[in-house]
Simulated assay, not measured.
Amino acid sequence: MTKIKMCGLRRTEDIEFANRLKPDYIGYVFAKKSKRYITPEKAAELTKLLDADIVPVGVFVDETMENVIAAVKMGAVKMVQLHGSESEDFVSELKSLGIPVIKAFQVISAEDIAAAESSCADMVLLDSGKGSGRTFDWSLIGSIRRPYLLAGGITAENAAQAIRQLRPYGVDASSCLETDGFKDFAKMTAFAQAVREAEEQA
């Protein structure tokens, strides 16, 4: 079953929406430059309201090791997603502490896929950019041999095509789930249904 990740949650109602729809993962954005930024402290409060079967993920961009670990220790997240230029050593250190890591790769060329394939992260995410909301050239993925999350412009309209064509481990959406910059339950529902229906038809 293709996993569903919904990213950029930051309000109590967002968590309520997620609890009703049951994605596999939700994401909090801890990058201060993002319009979806929330503090780890606020995320910890939201996670207390989150269904125990849904994994909360913290999205970081070139954050300090200390701050990443602190977000996990305070109970805000159970998994971290690194969207900057974090090194393999950085990933390895987090893993050595028992913290599962998703490493994001912006896919521009086949070399980016090769880097993703060789990453020591528990999981990799293939994206078009930092929240650009646009797809990248899926043909670049080629015959990648490890499971990956597919991000970057995945919507209710193209999720089925992505699942049929690429068979990703999971799909990750954020901007397409919003109206006027905030999560929209109808759009979240449409996305979840599109992924699950595509899976049934595959």
Score class of each variant (00 low, 15 high):
residue 85 S to N: 15
residue 103 K to D: 06
residue 150 L to K: 08
residue 56 P to F: 01
residue 196 R to T: 05
residue 54 I to T: 07
residue 158 N to T: 09
residue 60 F to C: 13
residue 193 Q to E: 15
residue 36 R to C: 04
residue 202 A to G: 12
residue 126 L to I: 03
residue 170 G to F: 11
residue 37 Y to C: 06
residue 140 L to Q: 01
residue 132 S to G: 07
residue 13 E to K: 13
residue 154 I to P: 01
residue 26 I to K: 13
residue 1 M to K: 14
residue 88 E to A: 15
residue 39 T to F: 02
residue 35 K to Y: 00
residue 18 A to Y: 01
residue 145 R to A: 13
residue 29 V to T: 05
residue 119 S to L: 07
residue 104 A to N: 08
residue 83 H to I: 06
residue 40 P to T: 14
residue 180 D to W: 01
residue 30 F to D: 02
residue 74 M to F: 00
residue 121 A to F: 06
residue 158 N to M: 12
residue 88 E to W: 06
residue 82 L to A: 12
residue 118 S to W: 01
residue 122 D to Q: 09
residue 69 I to R: 14
residue 201 Q to C: 02
residue 87 S to A: 03
residue 170 G to D: 13
residue 41 E to M: 05
residue 143 S to H: 13
residue 21 L to R: 11
residue 81 Q to I: 02
residue 188 M to K: 00
residue 92 S to C: 09
residue 37 Y to N: 14
residue 104 A to R: 06
residue 40 P to C: 09
residue 157 E to S: 14
residue 159 A to W: 01
residue 182 F to Y: 12
residue 51 D to Y: 03
residue 107 V to T: 06
residue 37 Y to L: 02
residue 73 K to G: 04
residue 164 R to L: 14
residue 81 Q to K: 10
residue 91 V to K: 07
residue 73 K to E: 15
residue 14 D to H: 06
residue 9 L to E: 03
residue 75 G to I: 10
residue 23 P to A: 02
residue 167 R to G: 01
residue 119 S to Y: 11
residue 141 I to R: 05
residue 10 R to Q: 08
residue 175 S to N: 04
residue 95 K to V: 11
residue 25 Y to V: 08
residue 165 Q to K: 09
residue 64 T to V: 11
residue 63 E to S: 15
residue 110 A to V: 15
residue 192 A to G: 03
residue 116 A to Y: 03
residue 154 I to G: 08
residue 10 R to M: 05
residue 186 A to C: 00
residue 74 M to K: 15
residue 71 A to Y: 03
residue 124 V to W: 04
residue 19 N to P: 12
residue 22 K to A: 12
residue 40 P to R: 05
residue 113 I to K: 11
residue 138 W to Q: 04
residue 68 V to L: 03
residue 185 F to Q: 13
residue 64 T to M: 02
residue 49 L to A: 06
residue 190 A to R: 15
residue 193 Q to R: 14
residue 2 T to E: 03
residue 138 W to E: 04
residue 102 I to F: 06
residue 62 D to T: 06
residue 60 F to H: 01
residue 29 V to Y: 04
residue 81 Q to W: 10
residue 163 I to P: 01
residue 48 K to I: 01
residue 47 T to H: 03
residue 67 N to P: 03
residue 28 Y to F: 15
residue 186 A to E: 14
residue 150 L to V: 09
